[in-house]
């Protein structure tokens, strides 16, 4: 069985939709249909796996442009924040 780990959820989902459509259209020989079926099942397992394992990733964009990863789900934002006032932006410098 081909390794699916490189597929994103969206990619896997899109391929799954195509696979189901191909099976629904029918007309293929039985061997091809069974291959579609096995591929579809593998894609479903992969999607479930991605959902099971996923934890919301949150990164904090610093004024310097640096990105600071926070704990999953965005916990510990306050700890990640720099000194008070670091986000008091210089309003005289209009970015546009």
């Amino acid at each position: 069985m081909e390794d699916l780990s490189h597929l994103s959820f969206e990619q896997a989902l899109a391929e799954l939709q195509r696979t189901v459509a191909a099976l629904e259209a029918g007309g293929g020989d039985l061997e091809a249909d069974i291959a579609h079926y096995e591929r579809g099942m593998a894609l479903i397992r992969h999607c479930h796996h991605l959902l099971d394992r996923a934890e919301l990733r949150v990164r904090l964009l610093m004024p310097t442009g640096e990105e600071v990863p926070l704990s999953p789900g965005g916990r510990g934002i306050s700890e990640a924040l720099p000194e008070e006032g670091a986000f008091d932006l210089d309003t005289d410098r209009d970015p546009f």
Partner: peptide
Amino acid sequence: AERWPLADVLLVP
């Protein structure tokens, strides 16, 4: 996090 844990959030303070 409950609805769509596959997302990647960039928080801009």
